[in-house]
Every structure is written in C-alpha cells, then in structure tokens.
C-alpha cells in the first residue's frame, strides 16, 4: 500500500482492521493494530512524505499473527534510541509515535539510515 497523503492513512488502517478481523483477532486487538498502522502511516506522511505499508499474516510456533512493515526512503532517524524515548519528536507533534506503537504491539523492530530511509517492522500475535 502506497502512503502519500492523509487519505492513505485512513485507507491503510481500515485495511489493517479488516485483515486483523479476518484473521480472527478480537475487536480490542484489531483496534490496537489499526491504531498502530495509523501512527506508522502518519510518521511516513509527516517525515518522509511518501512510503509504503505492507500487511502480512505470519505463523509462529503455535500461533498466528500479523506483521506490519512501514518503509520509506525519507530523511531517516539520526538517533533511534532518542526517538524511542517518550516525548521525543522532531516535527512538533506529540512525539509519542514510536514508543506508543511499541506498546500497542508485541514485537517491534526498527532500522534507519540518515538520508536513506526508515523501516519499522511490528508484529502482533493472536492470543
């Protein structure tokens, strides 16, 4: 899914909720997943202007889950550790984006190169 505008943020989270529901997540979990997608898509629009979000079903040893990958080739994050701290932001937003997303999901991975872009991979397992 291409993320280029604030309309795409809405479309991405709606798709995420639909997929989560289809996979059998509870309404509560589907809401957490949709909210995380919304935040990740918002980061793309605000910092990189355009990027992509892909949603995949994943299999663990005994459970199913959903994998969300948000990638962009924007300015990247200079200090990831600082970005993961609550309250940090470079675009004047609340700065809760990434640490908040980590709390919403079960697994969180980020890699970023300054002026190369950022990739965030998050997973949520079905209970």
């Amino acid at each position: 899914m291409a993320i280029n505008s604030d309309q795409d943020i809405v479309a991405a989270r709606q798709k995420g909720r639909a997929l989560a529901t289809e996979l059998g997540f509870t309404t509560g979990d589907a809401t957490l997943i949709a909210t995380a997608i919304s935040e990740l898509a918002r980061n793309i629009v605000s910092y990189a202007r355009k990027g992509e979000i892909s949603l995949k079903m994943v299999h663990g040893s005994s459970r199913q889950g959903i994998l969300i990958i948000a990638s962009d080739s924007g300015p990247g994050i200079r200090d990831i550790r600082q970005a993961m701290r609550d309250g940090f932001s470079t675009s004047g937003s609340l700065g809760l984006g990434l640490p908040g997303v980590r709390r919403l999901m079960d697994e969180f991975e980020i890699s970023s190169e300054p002026s190369q872009g950022t990739i965030v991979r998050v997973k949520k397992w079905k209970q």
Partner: peptide
C-alpha cells in the same frame, strides 16, 4: 469514546 478505543489510546499515551 469506545472501550477498545480508550484502551488503545492509553497504550499510546493519549
């Protein structure tokens, strides 16, 4: 505000 939405909000710190 719906219960699930409230739960997600506090997780996000909102």
């Amino acid at each position: 505000i719906q219960p699930e939405v409230a739960f997600a909000m506090v997780q996000l710190g909102l």
